[in-house]
Amino acid sequence: MTIADDISVSRADRPERRVSTLPAKTILLGLLTSIIVVFCVLPFLLVLAISFGRKVDGAAWVWDFTFDNYQRFFVGVLWPDEVTFLYLQQLGFSFYFAVIASLLAVLTALPFTLQLTRLKRTSQAMWLVFIMASLSLSEVFIVMGWDILLSNNSGLPKLFKETGLTQWLKDVGWFQHLRDWGLANPRNVKFKTSDFATILTMSYLVWPYAVILLYPALSRLDPSLSEAARTMGASRWTVTRTVTLPSIRLPLFGTTLLLFVFLLGTYVSITVFAAPNKHTTAVAIYSNIRGANLNAPFGATQAIMLLISASACLYLGHVFNRRSEVR
């Protein structure tokens, strides 16, 4: 509707000659609108409708209008006899991994991108093409790669063992601490499953996005500002803290927020690298909808709750942005 409204308003201001091209434009816009409705709005409404459905134990689910699934999300299926915050905990871990991984990606991409903008134009282009190309690797490939790199016989633990690092850790007694933290078995160090492997893979996954999103803002940075500050006697760190960072505050924040929302739905990295006590809402959604128990309504409920949480974060980010702009 809004698109159509815009067209009629702008048509009034335009010269007569352009009016003749409007039907084609209207058709195109109408087509695009219907594509968005059919492929975006309708599936979303379907998920919303299914989330009110009811699961029949031992069979599938049926259409209904019940809030039981939403109640279950907050307090568990046995409420009021018993309360569990299992699903809130899973949502919490969705946030935990997404926040840390997006921050890590942005913080490591920032110095890299800064250096990148100081290179020659041709080298910049080559780096950007290389980074863009790495985006063509799917999550499954990346996880598979890290899985091998962290495996006992072919990866980092093998390196630990062959270089004698494992033996050294055992000799000085630190190996026991690693075992206590779940980073070793009696034979060698192990990195699967661990927060370390999960966050590493998730950061790696979005790192190219971080570079590409930061690049425009950083390449527009005026070098004369920091040069002026330097000539006035400010140290390198002071310049970064008081000149560079404040001037890219908004893109920095926007990038982190975008990557965070993107990472909220990570599935493969979590299933492979995270311990089951830290599994997230995305994993729970899958195990309900596909998996063995065919509980699409509860899966849909969790998807809606994840979406609401992500939207809330985006909204808060927007408010925060506007406030800092006013200031």
Partner: peptide, 19 residues
């Protein structure tokens, strides 16, 4: 597994999620 699946699944997930 069939007649009590919601209870069994949630209890199982709770067991795995406990640290």
């Amino acid at each position: 597994y069939l007649d009590n699946e919601t209870f069994i699944k949630e209890s199982w997930d709770k067991m795995l999620a406990a640290s």
